[in-house]
Design a protein around this nucleic acid. Sequence first.
DNA 1: ATATTTATGTAGCGGTCGATACAGAATCGG
DNA 2: CCGATTCTGTATCGACCGCTACATAAATAT
Lengths: 203, 203
Amino acid sequence: MIRMTTKAGRPRGFDRDAALDTAMRLFWDKGYDATSIADLTAALGIAAPSLYAAFGGKRELFEQSIRHYQDAGRIEFSAILDAAPSAREGIARLLRDRADDFTDPAHPPGCMVLSAATNCATPEVATSLRDRRLANTAVVRRRIQRDIDSGLLDASADAEALTMYVGAVIQGMSAQARDGATREQLRGVAAAAMRAWPVADAE
Amino acid sequence: MIRMTTKAGRPRGFDRDAALDTAMRLFWDKGYDATSIADLTAALGIAAPSLYAAFGGKRELFEQSIRHYQDAGRIEFSAILDAAPSAREGIARLLRDRADDFTDPAHPPGCMVLSAATNCATPEVATSLRDRRLANTAVVRRRIQRDIDSGLLDASADAEALTMYVGAVIQGMSAQARDGATREQLRGVAAAAMRAWPVADAE
DNA sequence: ATATTTATGTAGCGGTCGATACAGAATCGG
DNA sequence: CCGATTCTGTATCGACCGCTACATAAATAT
């Protein structure tokens, strides 16, 4: 008889997914280092051994929180950029979307990938998030290069400079959201930023 | 007899200014929370009681480090903006200067005011730096408004949006410097950012 | 009913945190 | 010389850190 679905043992006394969501919000709000196990167990209403049994440890819980963050309805860079008819239009939508997301009152301000491990004393956590940031930068770079290759953007366009520029605006918007910037303010930043974009040849 | 200059007691066995500079670099590099008293005493080559006698405590030492940071040859926002013939020219110089400063190999990357207290568990320290950031933002806003009032910038220019935009670019450049961006990359960001600036009426 | 397996709650591990009590050392004024 | 004053080194404080040993509770398997 094959019984893969049932397991022996005492069932878990809390909702693992809900706990992961709560942990994500804590890490997002306060950052990795400043969020202690005591903070987490208090917010989750469980004791430390239950947390370790369910998630493995602080670092593992943080990694799962980051994955939960990226999978929780947030639109990826590549999804927005690939769906757009041009790099310019894609970047415009990306900035606008981030302005709204960074100031969504339903969750902590700013971007978790950008802010949760700044000045982090645990190198593995810091590099994990930096790698994610660099991956996003690469996605932007490729999308811009695609338009240059196809002739939609002038060949004189500096893909590298534009990529870094977009990255700076997004990181700055996140920092400003954490300093209390409003949605309208960040939308203004996104709009102002697009005026720097070179006008396309064919649009 | 008046003797204000000489004091009794055993003389300090280390250079206070040099120690403050070392402490500043540590806080700048690792942030307030991640820099421990043990880190500081080790780097300064002194024992904890000497540190407390000379500086008062961790928070006081940090405040003095921030003051030392702002007084150590760094050009203030107001100095750059007031000396420029226009807000546009001033912002351009400011961004260019920050690109160079954030990547100066003589000191840690990025801006200490922007990065040393992100996700800081000590609220007084976090608000102290945020207040400094908001003060800089106000300086930018006033400089832009001055050009609008004088007619140098078109009255349709959105001072608030431009101010937030400049702030976002600077904060983003600092974050990118901390992620390893080169001086040339940040100069490219500064140059790209200025293409968003509305063309002045009279220049 | 018993054995097995897994989760829970208590209580505490070694380590680090910021900060300090205390005694001795080094300089001053007299 | 003698206090008075200030700095230095040792040794440590209580609080918190991430983490876990241990016994108990609650489910399934046979």
